[in-house]
Design a protein around this nucleic acid. Structure first.
Length: 330
DNA sequence: ACCGTTACGGTTGAT
DNA sequence: AGATCAACCGTAACG
């Protein structure tokens, strides 16, 4: 209980809302600050995860499993991470405060560093603002829903706001993935040298061509698809800045090796990589097609390397691993 | 009571 | 190295 006592309650407003210019923070929603190495963090987080992973027994894969952080030191290193896997993209599940911007919340005083680890919502659940819920809880939400538990009850049981439960279930129903979206980063450029070259060709072939016509031709000629075709304004900018006189090949592509295309399209999907629609706990994941092998399952924008799959994150052996094969989404 | 939606403050990673 | 930007997050509240 002491773990949930805020060292310094954050009573300030957290922002406005539609009707109220200033929304008052709930007395139950408070930040708590803990000293590094304190057992308190572990206790508080275990309480939070137990609410998700333990109740109802059954979920062997989750109980005391990947989420349980038993070492305060480890908790410091990987506050809410389920996996230490590397990769180009962020692992969205790593909910610990970043050293970069959370620095303002790191206090170094008299040799002991304090750090804000999370907040407590109205339901008593622990969350880290700006960071996704742990995958174990996300998975539990889906599992409970599959068992016919109402979202409002899931919300109360797991101490996750109903809005979040609703969002996770809606996403799961739509995509088959329990995973959060990829946070941060930028879109891959769509105006690749090849696209610029085609735009130039079109312009040279028909100097009076409109940008929207160029756009249509890029699509018609298969240079781009609907996901990566430049906007009309982008094409106009290219015409203005990079092509301009139409005389010389711009420096953009003259002698440069084109930058590598992104390995995955921006809208590539992350698939929920279970070999069959069965959760690791054995609970049926319903008839949802969002499992490997279901083509046309294209909804979660952006993706992560396979090293970040739920299976790997949760420490679940995949079918491919069991058969000794490496697998890859590329 | 329930739930979809959204403003908000926050984090993240590419540029 | 630091700022900016645009993506995402979960909460709290409205309707």
């Amino acid at each position: 209980q002491a773990a949930l006592e805020p060292a310094e309650p954050s009573w300030g407003p957290t922002g406005g809302d539609k009707l109220f210019p200033v929304r008052r923070i709930s007395p139950n929603r408070m930040k708590f600050t803990l000293g590094l190495g304190s057992r308190a963090w572990r206790v508080s987080w275990e309480r939070a995860t137990e609410a998700g992973a333990s109740p109802g027994a059954g979920s062997g894969a989750l109980r005391g499993g990947a989420l349980r952080v038993s070492s305060p030191r480890l908790a410091h290193a990987l506050p809410l991470c389920l996996s230490g896997g590397g990769g180009a993209r962020a692992l969205p599940d790593c909910s610990g405060p970043s050293p970069r911007r959370s620095g303002a919340r790191q206090l170094v005083g008299s040799g002991a560093m304090e750090q804000t680890y999370g907040e407590v919502n109205q339901l008593g659940g622990v969350f880290v603002n700006g960071r996704p819920l742990p995958n174990a809880i996300r998975l539990r939400i889906v599992e409970l829903a599959q068992l016919g538990i109402r979202p409002c009850d899931i919300s109360r049981q797991l101490r996750v706001s109903h809005g979040c439960v609703s969002k996770i279930l809606a996403r799961y129903n739509e995509t088959g993935s329990i995973l959060p979206g990829a946070i941060g980063g930028s879109k891959p450029r769509v105006t690749t040298p090849n696209v610029v070259k085609h735009i130039r060709d079109y312009k040279q072939g028909d100097p009076g061509i409109f940008a929207w016509e160029i756009r249509d031709r890029l699509l018609a000629d298969g240079v781009c698809d609907k996901y990566n075709v430049p906007s009309v304004s982008s094409i106009s900018r290219i015409l203005r800045n990079k092509i301009g006189s139409l005389a010389q090949p711009g420096p953009y592509e003259a002698s440069k090796q084109p930058p590598p295309q992104p390995a995955l399209p921006y809208n590539h999907i992350y698939q929920y990589p279970y070999p069959s629609p069965v959760s690791p706990t054995g609970a049926k994941m319903g008839s949802h097609p969002g499992v490997p092998g279901s083509a046309g399952h294209v909804s979660i924008p952006r993706s992560w390397p396979s090293a970040h799959s739920v299976s790997n994150i949760l420490g679940i052996r995949t079918f491919m691993e069991q058969t000794g094969q490496s697998w890859c989404l590329l």
